[in-house]
């Protein structure tokens, strides 16, 4: 095992995954980098990939007329950027911008969706790994929504 397959195996998001799946996933993957300020993904665009962060931090942002840009999460090495590729209509719902030099593995969404349709065990394995991330982010969003540090907090 070498190259991208090794990197995927060692990434915390895929810790302990069956090597057969690593091989399948690596066929959809490539190394990529982003300079500070460059966008990994932008709201409304097609969700054609997701990223495993290896180095550097990424901020997730939402923009609205008259409200400026609100940063609501920072992600770093060992974490994952992008879950909308899993759910139709496969569109990003926020922006993700490199805060510093970012090195990541980019995984092609169409490629992985096709493999998951052909091999439901792979699809189930991916769901088991993505669901905790989604639930954690949902919990975090609830806490942020509660604004617990406000005057009543």
């Amino acid at each position: 095992m070498e190259g991208i397959e090794q990197i995927i195996t060692e990434h915390p998001f895929f810790a302990g995954i069956d090597p057969a799946y690593t091989h399948l996933i690596s066929n959809c993957a490539k190394n990529t980098r982003f300079d500070p300020g460059q966008y990994l993904l932008q709201q409304g665009a097609r969700a054609e990939q997701f990223y495993l962060l290896r180095h550097g931090r990424v901020v997730l942002e939402l923009s609205g007329p008259g409200r400026g840009t609100v940063t609501f999460q920072t992600l770093g090495p060992g974490e994952l950027v992008g879950v909308s590729w899993l759910i139709p209509p496969y569109r990003w719902t926020y922006d993700a911008k490199a805060l510093e030099l970012v090195r990541a593995v980019s995984i092609d969404a169409t490629c992985l969706r096709t493999k998951s349709e052909a091999d439901h065990d792979l699809g189930y394995e991916l769901m088991k790994r993505f669901m905790p991330v989604l639930v954690q982010r949902l919990h975090a969003a609830r806490l942020q929504l509660l604004d617990v540090y406000g005057a009543r907090g």
Binding site: V59, R67, G68, V70, T71, F72, A140
Partner: peptide, 19 residues
């Protein structure tokens, strides 16, 4: 140190402290 959200330039972490 983390902040729940920011509209200001901020190089630190953003997200809930429990994260």
């Amino acid at each position: 140190v983390t902040v729940d959200h920011t509209v200001e330039p901020w190089q630190g972490h953003v997200g809930v402290v429990t994260g």
